[in-house]
Structures are given as structure tokens and as C-alpha cells.
Computed example of a mutant assay.
Amino acid sequence: MKLSSQIKPISYLKSHTAEVVKSITETREPLVITQNGEAKLVVMDVKSFEEQEETMALLKLLAMGNKEIEEGKYRDVEDVFAELDAADER
């Protein structure tokens, strides 16, 4: 796991919660929390989390599209537009 953000022990989070919230909200830098010297969780602001979730959703859609292409489940764009034109003329 690549940890380019701040790293603090869980005791720091417990004793500096308000500061941590303010810092993360302002900088949008995630904070890695360690327990017994091992990374255990990441604290991030809500906006960054939501952006990450949107990115993951788009990546899933792309992966699904690639899988469908590999399985031959696609149509040529010319055929799709021809069908749309025909439907529009009706």
C-alpha cells in the first residue's frame, strides 16, 4: 500500500480529534492511523471520499464495458445511429 499522506498513531487521533478534523477538511489530505506500528485505517474528508466513490463507479462501468466488448456484446455505432434515425422518422 502506498502511503503518501500523513501517518499518526491512534493515540494522536484520540487526543487531537478536533485538530485532525480541521486539518483534513482544509488540506483534503488523508490521514493514516496506525495501531501498534501497523497501518489500520485512513481518515479522509467527505468530499474526497465522495469523489473517490464516483471514480470507482466510473471505473466499474469501464470494466463492464470492456468485458462486454471482449464477449462480443456490442454493436457498430453506424447501426445504432441508423436505428435511431429510423425511429425518429416514424
Rank of each mutant, 00 (worst) to 15 (best):
E51Y: 09
K2R: 11
E26S: 01
L3K: 11
V32K: 03
E50G: 14
D45A: 09
L31G: 01
L62N: 01
M56Y: 02
I24T: 08
V46F: 14
E51A: 03
V42K: 00
S5A: 10
T27D: 02
L62F: 09
E89D: 13
A87R: 14
F81T: 13
Q52N: 00
T55C: 02
L59W: 00
E83L: 12
K8M: 14
I69F: 12
M64H: 10
V20L: 06
V42I: 12
K73A: 15
T27L: 00
K14L: 04
K14D: 04
I69P: 08
L13N: 14
M56C: 00
V42S: 11
M56N: 08
N36R: 07
G65I: 02
S11P: 07
E19R: 05
Q52S: 12
K40H: 01
T34P: 00
V77R: 09
K47Y: 10
Q52E: 13
K2C: 08
I7F: 02
D45F: 06
E26R: 02
I24K: 01
V46T: 13
A39R: 05
R75I: 15
V20K: 00
V32M: 03
Q35P: 06
K8R: 15
A82D: 13
G72A: 07
S48W: 07
V20M: 02
V46I: 14
Q52K: 03
Q6I: 09
R75Q: 15
E29M: 03
K67P: 06
L59R: 07
L31T: 01
E51I: 06
L59E: 06
I33F: 04
H16E: 11
V46S: 04
V43A: 14
L58Y: 11
T55E: 09
Y74T: 02
R90I: 15
M1L: 13
E19P: 08
A86E: 15
V32W: 04
L31V: 03
L59K: 07
A82Q: 13
P9H: 10
I10S: 03
K40L: 01
V46C: 10
R28Y: 07
D85G: 13
S11G: 06
E29G: 11
L3G: 05
K47I: 09
E38T: 03
K60Y: 11
V43L: 04
V77K: 09
D88Y: 15
L59A: 05
E53H: 11
E70A: 03
S5L: 09
K40Y: 00
V42G: 05
L61S: 06
D76C: 12
K2Y: 13
D88K: 12
D85N: 15
S11D: 06
F49A: 15
E51F: 05
D88G: 12
E51Q: 12
E26T: 06
V77A: 11
D88M: 13
E78D: 10
L62H: 01
Q35K: 08
H16T: 06
T27F: 00
P9C: 01
M56A: 01
I10E: 05
A18M: 06
I10Q: 07
A57G: 08
P9W: 09
I69V: 06
L59I: 04
L13H: 08
A39H: 12
D76R: 14
T27P: 05
G72I: 07
K14C: 02
K8A: 03
E50S: 13
E71W: 11
E38S: 07
L61I: 08
